[in-house]
Simulated assay, not measured.
Amino acid sequence: MDGIIHMTEASPVVVAFGRAAAADVRRLAGLHDHEPTTDLLEELRAQPLQDLFGLTLDRPDIAQALALLGEALDTLPRPADAAALDELAADFAAIHLTNALRACPIESVWVHEEPLRRQEAMFRVKAWHRRFGVVTDDPRDPDHLVLELHFLAELLERGLGAEAADFLDQHPLRWVPAFCGRVAARCRTPYFAGTALLTGGYLDALRDLLAQGFDRPRPARQDAESRRKEACG
Score class of each variant (00 low, 15 high):
Pro139Thr: 09
His112Ile: 02
Glu71Phe: 07
Ala84Cys: 11
Ala83Phe: 03
Lys229Gly: 01
Asp141Gln: 13
Met1Val: 13
Ala103Cys: 14
Ala184Gly: 03
Leu41Pro: 00
Thr8Pro: 01
Thr37Phe: 02
Val135Trp: 04
Leu168Ile: 05
Ala184Gln: 03
Arg59His: 09
Gly18Glu: 04
His34Gly: 06
Leu68Pro: 00
Ala205Glu: 10
Asp141Cys: 03
Pro142Arg: 10
Glu120Trp: 04
Arg228Ser: 11
Ser108Phe: 02
Arg174Asn: 00
Phe17Thr: 01
Leu85Phe: 02
Gly3Arg: 13
Glu154Cys: 13
Gly161Leu: 09
Pro219Gly: 06
Arg216Glu: 11
Arg174His: 01
Asp86Thr: 15
Ala23Val: 08
Gln222His: 09
His34Arg: 15
Leu41Ile: 12
Trp128Gln: 04
Pro12Asp: 07
Pro60Phe: 05
Met122Cys: 13
Arg130Thr: 05
Met1Gln: 10
Asp58Phe: 03
Gly3Asn: 12
Ala29Met: 12
Ala20Asp: 04
Gly194Val: 12
Ala83Gly: 01
Ala90Gly: 08
Leu28Ile: 14
Glu9Val: 06
Gly18Arg: 05
Asp169Lys: 09
Glu120Cys: 01
Thr38Pro: 00
Phe214Arg: 09
Phe214Ala: 11
Pro115Ile: 10
Ala10Ser: 05
Cys232Arg: 05
Asp208Ser: 10
Leu145Cys: 09
Asp208Pro: 00
Val13Lys: 11
Leu168Ala: 07
Asp2Phe: 04
Ala10Met: 10
Pro177Glu: 03
Phe214Gly: 03
Ala65His: 05
Glu154Trp: 14
Pro139Leu: 12
Met122Asn: 09
Arg59Phe: 06
Thr56Trp: 06
Arg216Ala: 15
Ala224Cys: 13
Pro190Leu: 06
Leu156Pro: 02
Ala211Phe: 04
His6Tyr: 08
Leu152Val: 05
Arg118Trp: 07
Leu197Ala: 10
Phe167Glu: 00
Met1Leu: 13
Pro172Ile: 07
Ala80Ser: 08
Pro177Leu: 14
Glu35Asn: 09
Thr38Asp: 04
Arg124Asn: 04
His171Leu: 13
Ala16Lys: 13
Ile5Glu: 08
Asp141Arg: 13
Phe123His: 14
His96Met: 15
Asp169Trp: 08
Glu163Phe: 03
Leu69Lys: 09
Pro177Val: 09
Glu114Asp: 10
Gly133Ser: 01
Leu160Ser: 07
Cys104Ile: 05
His171Pro: 00
Glu42Arg: 14
Ala100Asn: 01
Ala224Asp: 02
Arg19Ser: 07
Ala80Glu: 01
Ala80Leu: 06
Pro177Phe: 08
Ala22Gly: 09
Glu87Arg: 15
Arg228Cys: 09
Arg221Tyr: 01
Thr75Gly: 09
Arg227Phe: 06
Met7Trp: 01
Thr195Gly: 02
Asp169Tyr: 05
Arg118Thr: 01
Thr75Lys: 12
Ala67Gly: 02
Leu57Arg: 07
Ala82Met: 03
Phe53Trp: 14
Asp141His: 08
Leu76Ser: 06
Leu97Ile: 14
Arg188Ala: 10
Arg140Leu: 07
Phe123Val: 05
Leu31Tyr: 13
Pro142Asp: 03
Ser11Glu: 11
Val15His: 12
Arg182Cys: 01
Leu28Met: 13
Ala224Gln: 02
Lys126Tyr: 00
Ala196Phe: 04
Cys232Tyr: 05
Ala220Cys: 06
Pro177Trp: 10
Val25Trp: 10
Pro139Ile: 11
Pro12Arg: 15
Gln212Cys: 02
Ala67Cys: 08
Phe167Lys: 02
Thr8Ser: 14
